[in-house]
Design a protein around this nucleic acid. Structure first.
Lengths: 344, 344
DNA sequence: TTGTAAGCGTTATCAA
DNA sequence: TTGATAACGCTTACAA
């Protein structure tokens, strides 16, 4: 009703000074236990709500961080955010969600907004295009102005002192290839999202490494790039799956692509795993219920979120130790989408 | 490097007054086009970053809203948030995500934080327990202090003047029951999350209404409540599905329960739809790939997000019109999980 | 068009 | 233990 009550109103109503009220309400020392109680009482009677803009202006602390995600539609982020919130809430930290949609410009804008907002830290999965362009300089700028940054899922190389938590993507895909080879597959296709993005490059490189180690030579044209939506993905899959000498197995590199391959196979009349094996990546709980249940490479996403938030809060709390780079291991969930190819 | 540059630094460096700089930088009138350009240039040279705490303190505007979600793990929110972000970004509004986890106390804490933070609005899906307790008074408090509130998905009854966007839950479930009856089902079970929650009550009531209209009388014990995790859900489903006179169809009321029913049926050796039909609710893109593809009641979630954000921005922009209550219609996606019961 | 000055609600420093 | 005062960085009457 009335204009918002401030610390001054409380002070006036008790006939004391604003500074005392401030001390009492922020649990600072130097206030009589008795007086403190009376102040608290009046504050709640007057419906006092602290003004954090004023507080932040004075203290330069907002208890707020920014969470930059590359694609808000990806179920990966639900789990990740869940992990982050778990850690942030008990510490009374709030987070602003920034969805870049793999748009470098949007990422830049959000970084600027976060700086203006006065966040104390940023947890980000940065974008990088195939030419290697990224927003590294903006993250640097944020760091220079005292904002701590933690990268998750993706890295920007050559930018120092930024803590990170990522997956061992190379190893994850290598294990996938090994698993397929064990079951007799040498004709393996790979589905990739946009080249340039850290995880995609790592997964691609893991694929090549594993093939080299095993001495197998999948056709270069079976490496499908830019699978960004269903219609282009279907076209690309069709182009390799309708040939006589087609691959016998496909490795997908995210949950969206798992679905895409299953759909495409159905549309092309290919049975999984009889006609085509699928090694999925990421794990929606639904992968188990799909026909057939999809064998998949699972990342510990919730942990990733918790670790990212913990690293960041550590820095905010004053940890000036060396850069931390946490690398998590993936797990291969064996289900039913991989078979041995005919004739083996 | 240096302490952050402020408007004063820019003013000093140009030998002009801070107010002129402020006017120039905030695109206000009353500044020479020439001067404005020079100010802009110096600002960027000095790496000027506006301090929004200071700005907010002065203007009482933060360009920030709060988004309260009841369970961050529910894929519903991914889509919803996506819709919200779409509308907010072009308007330069940021959002803070608050996960209550169906915990009334946590909801209250978040509302308080949002008020302190100075958000201009709150988009919320409020919790209510089976006794009807909710945080209505806190939402009222927020409203009274000038924070606009929009409810989505769920409502708190008897609290006036709050815009909302919800689903026509009663009709949605009624259509589901009608669909089942058309295919010969009269022995229908219903799976519910926590009673008390708005959507759950509405869906339950829709179920009863439809049964009354059709003159069918499912066993009361087939209405399963509190299906909050897999093990209790499995137990409850087992208790009704292992009886000789068991239901022939189950209606689920969220995506999580869709999965639960499918898993439980498999565990109990029941084939869907031969032994048991399933009418799902909510639609993950994966429902189509499940074995069998799940017939489901789909909500227009992205639209819901866009509408909620649009309503809120309208209020923030000064719309003082009557309370708006948008009620969206669900869509029944016919797939393969419903069959006619044996003997029909 | 530009400058002056007050004030937004806090906290922190210094005295009392 | 308490109070007076300045300051955080910005906007906005009002005056020039």
């Amino acid at each position: 009703m009335a204009g918002k009550t401030t610390i001054k109103d409380i002070a006036k109503s008790l006939g004391i000074s604003p500074s005392t009220v401030s001390r009492a309400l922020s649990n600072g020392p130097g206030v009589g236990g008795d007086l403190r109680e009376r102040i608290r009482k009046v504050a709640s009677q007057l419906n006092y709500v602290p003004n954090s803009s004023a507080k932040s202006l004075r203290t330069r602390k907002t208890k707020t961080i920014g969470l930059i995600v590359s694609d808000i539609r990806n179920p990966f982020f639900l789990e990740f955010m869940g992990g982050v919130e778990t850690v942030l809430f008990p510490r009374e930290f709030k987070f602003i969600v920034c969805n870049t949609g793999e748009d470098s410009k949007k990422e830049e804008i959000y970084i600027r907004w976060l700086m203006e907002h006065g966040v104390e830290g940023i947890i980000s999965s940065p974008y990088q295009d195939r030419e290697g362009n990224n927003n590294g300089t903006f993250y640097k700028k944020a760091m220079n102005s005292g904002i701590h940054v933690v990268f998750y899922d993706r890295l920007i190389e050559g930018i120092s002192n930024i803590d990170s938590v990522t997956l061992d993507n190379e190893q994850a895909i290598m294990n996938g290839v090994f698993y397929l080879k064990d079951r007799g597959h040498e004709r393996i296709a790979l589905c990739l999202h946009k080249r340039g993005i850290y995880t995609i490059e790592e997964r691609y490189s893991g694929f090549k490494k594993a093939c080299a180690i095993l001495g197998i030579h999948p056709d270069d044209r079976w490496v499908l790039e830019d699978m960004v939506n269903y219609s282009v993905s279907l076209d690309k899959l069709r182009s390799i799956l309708t040939l006589a000498d087609r691959p016998t197995a496909v490795i997908s590199t995210n949950q969206y692509l798992n679905e895409t391959v299953v759909r495409a196979a159905r549309e092309l009349g290919l049975d999984i795993p009889a006609d085509l094996s699928l090694m999925g990546f990421d794990d929606s709980s639904l992968n188990e219920l799909i026909d057939p249940p999809v064998t998949t490479i699972r990342q510990p996403v919730v942990d990733m979120g918790k670790i990212a938030a913990t690293l960041l809060l550590g820095r905010i709390d004053g940890d000036r130790g060396e850069q931390t780079r946490v690398v998590l291991k993936a797990e291969l969930l064996e289900r039913c989408s991989v078979a041995s190819p005919a004739g083996k």
